[in-house]
Amino acid sequence: MNEPAVILLIEDEIQIRRFVRSALEDEGHQVLECGTLKPSMAHVHAAKPQLAILDLGLPDGDGIDFIRELHTHSEMPVLVLSARSSEGDKIRALDAGADDYLTKPFSIGELLARVRALLRRNKAAPAELMFRFGEVAVDLVQRLVTRNGDVVHLTPIEYRLLCAMLANVGKVMTYRHLLRAVWGNSHIESNHYLRIYVSHLRQKLENDPTQPKHFLTETGVGYRFNI
C-alpha cells in the first residue's frame, strides 16, 4: 500500500468529485477539491499536493493551459479525465506534460491503479537497471534481453524503443514522444515506423502478439508499457 498523499482534484461535476474523493480517501489519501481552474493554482502553492487529477472540460478555461503553467514550477504528476473520441485532446494534454489519462466513464479500480502508478513514480526512485515482465528479463547494464533464459536478439532501434518504454512503465507515451526518444526529430510524423517496431517487440517478447499483455496500444494516442 502507498503512503498517504495529498491529491488535488479539479472537476466541475460534483457527483464525479464525490465518488472519486471517497475512493481516494478509502485509500488513505487527502483530497483537495476544486470545481474550477481559478482556485486550483492557489491550492498547488499552499498545500503542495503530490498529484493532480484534472478534468479537461472545465467551464472556466483550458485544462491544457493549466498543465503547462503547472509544469513551469512543479514536477507534480497530472492525471487527465477525458471523454472518448477526443484523442486530439488527450494527445495535446500528454504532450503538454500530463502523465496519464482516464477515459470517462472509468471504474474505481482503474482510477486507483493509475493513481498508485503515478505516486510511485513520483518518488524519486533510483533508476532501475533490471526489469522483469512475463518471461522476459532485461539487464540495462549488460544490454541483455532474455526470454525464459534464452537471449533474445534485438536490433538497435528495437532496443532503444524497449528502453524508452521501460523508462516510462505504466505511463502513456504518445507517438510523438516515442518517435523523438528513439529516432530523434527525423521521423516525428512517421507513426507507422513506430507501429512496426512495436509489433517487432511484441513478436519477440509477448506470448501472444495479437493480444499483448505488456506492450499495450492506446488507440489513437500512443502506447503504454505495463510490467
Partner: peptide
C-alpha cells in the same frame, strides 16, 4: 449532448462501482 450525457453516466458508473466494492 455528449458532455451532458456522459457526465451523469460517469457519475452513475463510478458510484455503482463504489457501492459494488
Amino acid at each position: 449532448l455528449s458532455h451532458d450525457i456522459r457526465t451523469p453516466l460517469t457519475a452513475i458508473y463510478g458510484m455503482a462501482d463504489t457501492l459494488a466494492l
